[in-house]
Design a protein around this nucleic acid. Structure first.
Length: 452
RNA sequence: GGAGAGAUGCCGGAGUGGUUGAACGGGACGGUCUCGAAAACCGUUGUGCUCUUAUGGGUACCGAGGGUUCGAAUCCCUCUCUCUCCGCCA
């Protein structure tokens, strides 16, 4: 992903005026781009998306509209011509009409081909245009994320804290060596209490989100490339973040966001059912292409992990509120794990194309002496629903695109890192946070096995 | 994996290649009737693109994509999905 650093500047006031979801007819589509060209250009600059060209989109669209008009004029004449031939008529009159029909058919074919090409070019250009951005999002790159809140205090250790790799090895919890033989690097086995810890974290997170109104789901771990694309993933090509299954039109999912969002693809929802909150447990698979060397040791960046995810479909008016709600659930979960963390508002240059705004929770990681990302929640407004074609009927009974949001309840390996490192004791044992104990048979501590 | 059947509007369900955006039934909505309700009766009941906007017009859409034809929901091919039977499997 392209990360470009920007200096802070004044917010362009125009962006404050821009509320795409306040206008019934507006959306981040060609029409919106045409009518808000300067804002779209500015948004692209702020996000540092190099290959997005809104001017080209507008030009290609103009070309497309012309071709539509010409094509439809021919179709109209073709239909009229065919209508004339319904009843009886002298053979020579009929053959004249047939001749005319043949001419029209040829013309139409040529225009349809041109139109098809124009639409393909337009869609290609359109694909590179990112979502608009919430006016409060800080402008800048990875380091310009704005800290919104600090919860808890990093513990001061009276001994030298170990990293999770050391703890995992000493307590016989994580086995990277065997996984390297079986699957290669960046895979792992969880053993003993770590295996139970995963199940406990999943159950804990599922219970929290269920109590907050999220309907629990266990989702498929594979999905069609078209769904991945609609969610905003790039399923094919060198830089793809996901695995493809050879011989099948399927990818291993990078997150349950894909399967939860895709679940209602093509549907028109009832307004009274919104916001619709769904939660899901799935495995997540990531190639981590191009990520070698970046925090690649241990559980921080792995090819497969388990995750409990939240997803919501809302009206445009509800999405910001639900976004705040997701963040509050994430905070509840990490507070329950008794881990110090901070909340950051991700800057423009670090947002993925679908996100209108994104909040991350970063947990304190003693071995790195810094905070590391453990959850992420994004408001994608209409970006995904437009591609997935998920709508609802508004008060005028008109179909409108829903807003979609997603948030991590628990990404298991990173939670395990935080637990092992923050709750380690001088004697090498690890305290299990109270919130997880009911899911671990009441167990309170992880200790070295006797004779090990 | 093998054999067969199917996919039409909110739902059910018709549909000889030429006024079929789509019969008929149900539901929903509006109205008449009623003190009120039910029943009955009358009416309304899609989406995208596009032009023009007061209204309105054009075009496309009968699982998806191709093809045949002057003309396709209707004929042909491919794909997807659903159902039944057999096989296999946790």
């Amino acid at each position: 992903m392209l990360l470009v650093r920007f200096g802070f500047g004044c917010y362009p006031c125009a962006i404050h005026i821009l509320k795409p979801f306040d206008r019934g007819d507006s959306m981040l589509d060609v029409k919106f781009i045409r009518e808000n060209l300067e804002l779209v250009r500015e948004n692209i600059r702020n996000r540092g998306v190099g290959n997005a060209d809104p001017d080209q989109v507008v030009a290609l669209n103009t070309q497309r509209v012309e071709l539509i008009q010409q094509t439809e004029a021919i179709r109209k004449e073709r239909n009229e011509n065919a209508q004339k031939m319904k009843g009886q008529m002298p053979p020579e009159e009929r053959s004249e009409l047939i001749e005319r029909g043949k001419e029209l058919k040829e013309q139409l074919a040529s225009y349809e081909e041109k139109l098809g090409q124009a639409e393909e070019e337009l869609n290609h250009a359109l694909k590179n245009i990112p979502n608009m951005t919430h006016p409060d999002v800080p402008i800048g790159g990875e380091d310009d994320a704005k800290e919104l809140e600090l919860v808890g205090t990093p513990r001061s250790f009276e001994f030298q804290p170990k990293d999770h790799l050391t703890i995992g090895k000493e307590l016989d919890l994580i086995d990277f060596e065997s996984a390297a033989d079986v699957t290669g690097s960046s895979f792992y086995y969880l053993k003993n209490e770590a295996a139970l810890l995963e199940l406990a974290l999943v159950n804990y997170a599922m219970n929290v989100i269920t109590s907050r109104g999220y309907i629990p789901h266990l989702t498929p771990d594979l999905a069609r490339p078209a769904i991945l694309e609609a969610i905003g993933f790039n399923p094919r090509g060198e830089e793809s973040q996901v695995y493809n299954v050879e011989g099948h039109d399927l990818c291993l999912i990078g997150t349950a966001e894909i399967t939860l969002g895709g679940m209602l693809s093509g549907k028109i929802l009832r307004k009274e059912d919104l916001p619709m909150r769904v939660g899901g447990f799935s495995h997540c698979f990531r190639t981590e292409a191009g990520a070698h060397g970046r925090e690649s040791r241990g559980l921080y960046r792995v090819h497969q992990f388990s995750k409990v995810e939240m997803f919501a479909f809302t009206t445009p008016e509800q999405s910001e509120e639900v976004h705040a709600e997701m963040l509050s659930i994430e905070k509840e979960i990490y507070s329950g794990l008794e881990i110090p963390f901070r909340v950051v508002d991700i800057a423009t240059g670090d947002l993925g194309a679908p996100a209108y705004r994104k909040f991350d929770i970063e947990a304190w990681m003693p071995s790195r002496e810094t905070y590391g990302e453990v959850t992420s929640t994004s408001n994608c407004t209409e970006f995904q629903s437009r591609r997935l074609n998920i709508r609802y009927r508004d008060d005028e009974n008109q179909p409108r695109f829903v807003h979609t949001l997603n948030g991590t309840a628990v990404a298991v390996p990173r939670a395990i890192i935080a637990i092992l490192e923050n709750h380690q004791n001088a004697d090498g044992s690890v305290r299990i946070p109270e919130a997880l104990r009911p899911y671990m048979g009441g167990r309170e501590i992880i200790e070295a096995r006797k004779g090990a």
